[in-house]
Nucleic acid binder design. Structure first.
Length: 738
DNA sequence: GCCTCTGGATTTTTT
DNA sequence: ATCCAGAGGC
């Protein structure tokens, strides 16, 4: 089905241009993914390149996984030897193996944004900086920015131009020192330290250069300077560098993505072959034209002329609602109608918005009308407290110098080591020039020996005992980690740390515990490795992956998603809501021409996700941060020629005000078609009410006390016989009505 | 050591 | 409106 012959002429050219640098500019829906996979398959099957010698970089783990899956069908077993992954995953692997040459310990841990903030706050404390005067988030962003541009702390300090920059410089230096002592790398470090390693150790770089005959990078428009540098380094020997991207879809400049990379590729590689993929296979002519008109206003842009053989299709529907509630209502109604007419299924629809805050009112409407939906990325699994806590235990086992993890769990569950004791411990550690963990060991040793130095230990009986006890269990964990398999270790740690008990006692215990069990199944995936390797692989996996299962495109539900997250996806019907000044473009981007161009690209990305129907909605009046305001329609709407647009007539508008009862037949319909697939996430919310009897897999039978909406879910309070009252999240708890 | 209260902020978040 | 961090009270 996916064969070479089915590619158009340009695509074939892109697949076969395997000598030297290649820049593929791929418009939306131009079959980019197919080209990339076909190209790899071509290299292996036709050219006879050993898969081991191909490097393919993607931007998400999901994209990497998809690429591997597609390739499996084309070249079967050969994929095993390919290097496919994100920049971060690939760099982590390189540093794990070769980092030692540049002073990076093999057991380093990876700090995420959360851990980073902890370190920054600690640094600021140590430097006596008031977090109210200098906002830690801003400092974190500045440091990350500096790292993305390969500016070292010393350089930063040298070139600081203002008091604020000077402060940042000081925190930056301290921050680096802290990370080093914790044997930790942040996300930016993974890239930066790899580039540095390659610069300093030509022999290491040479090995990778020699190995990778072909280097490919997807989503090149979103790479930053370090990433580009990395590609240049690795690809230098063979110069078979193929980058694929679309400058018009660059929407991550605020994360240091640098559009100049793609714009200057031809400058850096004058012999680069440039291939434009301009035929669109996704959208109708009207949608594509709408998109082109919006994007063509941008000044800093390579001209590109997209075209399609697809039908003209429906006109773009531009809808003005009175309020955001009416806007949401229109969306739901329209979806119900299209589904009722058997034109589409729920999975065909996506509703997109600029800010997460907008999802709320949409959810309320979907719940009210009983239309199943899926909110992409509510609370991320790995950001949940209990998940982070448990991971912290394992990070500490692998690397006891990890101060962030230690701080996190030293008193979780509570073991009598409060802030005072904790602070005292850090001070003592600093005075001895040792890490906190090593200090704990010293404490235990001297306690056991009851030696003469005991008077130096600044802890009286109770605090000292608590610290010693904690230290002892950690030592035991570390010993066991050498020989016990990961899942057994997992269970042991949760039991003996008392974390299991602690969790189950929590009001939200059931939900928390289920998350921990979920994490346990992740740990199970590494059962084939030796204990040491399994632990390392597990930690690396959880550090670099943001979602457990990704999302299931098969699930027949309406998708609610931010414009940013929608990149790379496609839907038969797309609604973009809040197409208003101050929202899209966002108010924070309105005074900077470059940022304004990015907002426009964001709008373009949204529009080009649509295959058959496109709705652009705005509300006359919108409540925003508790304040109601009147926003004019987005300037982007004015760039769409009238001939491409329809606005709904009054009859259609009127209907949105009809009472809920009118839709009840529809709700039943949806229930019937959807119900069996799995216990649906959101449908029962309207059903479960106080007094209902329910059954839970762990707690048994109980009675519903209350059911209230929280964020993207419903919090159901249930009184279980003999188990007490628990608060459960509906989406996770598998409550069965009895 | 835990709980409640208040003040401040609230774009986007592939890793 | 609402969520969160940090301060201060019990």
């Amino acid at each position: 089905m996916d064969t070479f012959a089915e590619l158009n002429q340009k695509q074939q050219e892109a697949v076969q241009a395997i000598k030297g640098p290649v820049l593929i500019l791929a418009g939306p829906g131009s079959g980019k993914t197919r080209v990339i996979t076909q190209r790899v398959a071509y290299l292996i099957k036709v050219v006879g390149i050993n898969p081991r010698r191909i490097l393919a970089v993607t931007f998400t783990n999901k994209a990497a996984k998809e690429m591997v899956e597609r390739l499996e069908k084309l070249v079967s077993g050969a994929v095993k030897n390919l290097t496919v992954g994100t920049f971060h995953a690939i760099c982590a692997k390189i540093l794990r193996i070769d980092g030692k040459a540049n002073g990076i310990p093999m057991e380093f841990v990876i700090y995420d944004a959360d851990d980073q903030m902890s370190v920054i706050k600690r640094c600021m404390q140590e430097l006596n900086l008031d977090p109210k005067q200098h906002i830690p988030q801003a400092i974190a962003a500045a440091i990350s920015n500096a790292k993305s541009k390969m500016v070292a702390p010393a350089d930063y300090v040298k070139h600081s131009r203002s008091y604020f920059e000077e402060v940042i410089g000081r925190v930056y230096e301290r921050y680096e020192k802290n990370l080093f002592e914790s044997k930790a790398l942040d996300f930016d470090d993974l890239l930066l330290k790899t580039v540095r390693l390659f610069r300093k150790h030509a022999e290491v770089l040479a090995r990778y250069q020699e190995r990778y005959i072909h280097v490919m990078v997807d989503e090149f428009q979103d790479t930053n300077l370090v990433q580009y540098e990395l590609i240049k380094q690795v690809g230098e020997k063979y110069r078979n560098i193929c980058v694929v991207g679309d400058p018009d879809q660059s929407i991550y400049s605020w994360r240091s993505a640098d559009l100049r990379n793609i714009l200057s590729f031809e400058h850096d590689y004058p012999d680069a072959k440039v291939i434009l993929l301009e035929q669109n296979y996704r959208s109708t002519k009207n949608i594509l034209e709408t998109a082109s008109n919006v994007i063509s206003v941008n000044q800093k842009r390579k001209a590109k002329r997209l075209w399609t053989d697809n039908d003209t299709g429906e006109r773009t529907m531009v809808v003005e609602a009175y309020t955001e509630q009416e806007e949401a209502q229109f969306v739901v109604r329209e979806i119900e109608q299209l589904v009722a007419n058997d034109k589409f299924r729920l999975g065909d629809f996506a509703v997109m918005y600029r800010t997460n805050a907008q999802s709320r009112v949409l959810e309320e409407a979907f719940i009210r009308y009983g239309v199943p939906y899926r909110l992409v990325a509510g609370t991320r699994f790995y950001e949940r407290r209990e998940v982070k806590d448990v991971i912290a235990y394992f990070r500490l086992i692998q690397n006891p110098q990890d101060s962030v993890s230690l701080q996190r769990i030293i008193n979780v569950p509570g073991r009598g080591i409060g802030p005072t004791t904790s602070a005292k411990l850090s001070v003592w550690a600093q005075s001895m020039g040792a890490s906190v963990y090593d200090t704990l060991r010293i404490l235990v040793d001297s306690k056991q020996k009851k030696d003469a130095n005991a008077e130096d230990i600044p802890f009286n009986g109770r605090a000292g005992d608590a610290l010693a006890r904690f230290s002892e269990i950690m030592v035991e964990f570390i010993e066991r980690s050498q020989k016990t398999n990961l899942v057994e270790l997992f269970d042991f740690v949760l039991e003996s740390s008392n974390y299991k008990q602690f969790t189950l006692n929590d009001p939200d215990g059931a939900e928390r515990w289920e998350n921990i069990l979920e994490l346990r199944t992740v740990a199970q995936q590494y059962r084939e490795l030796s204990p040491r390797e399994a632990l390392a692989a597990f930690l690396e996996g959880v550090a670099l992956v943001s979602d457990v299962d990704g999302y299931d495109a098969m699930l027949d539900r309406v998708t609610l998603i931010t414009l940013h997250q929608a990149k790379g996806l496609e839907f038969p019907v797309v609604f973009i809501v809040g197409v208003e000044e101050k929202l899209l473009p966002h108010i924070r981007s309105m005074d900077d021409p470059d940022q304004l161009e990015e907002e426009r690209r964001l709008c373009y990305v949204g529009i080009t996700r649509a295959k058959q129907r496109l709705y652009l909605l705005h509300a006359f009046r919108r409540t925003f941060m508790g304040q109601s305001a009147v926003n004019p329609p987005s300037r982007f709407l004015e760039d769409i020629p009238k001939r491409l647009i329809t606005t709904p007539g009054w009859s259609q508008r009127e209907e949105t005000k009809v009472s809920d009862a009118v839709y009840s037949w529809n709700r039943v319909r949806v229930d019937e078609t959807e119900g069996k697939k799995e216990k649906s996430l959101h449908l029962p919310s309207t059903d479960l009410k106080a007094g209902d009897r329910v059954r839970h897999s762990i707690f048994g039978d109980g009675v519903v006390v209350s059911n209230k909406k929280v964020k993207s879910d419903n919090e159901v309070t249930v009184a279980f016989s003999g188990q007490g009252i628990k608060k459960l999240l509906l989406s996770l708890a598998h409550l069965e009505k009895i």
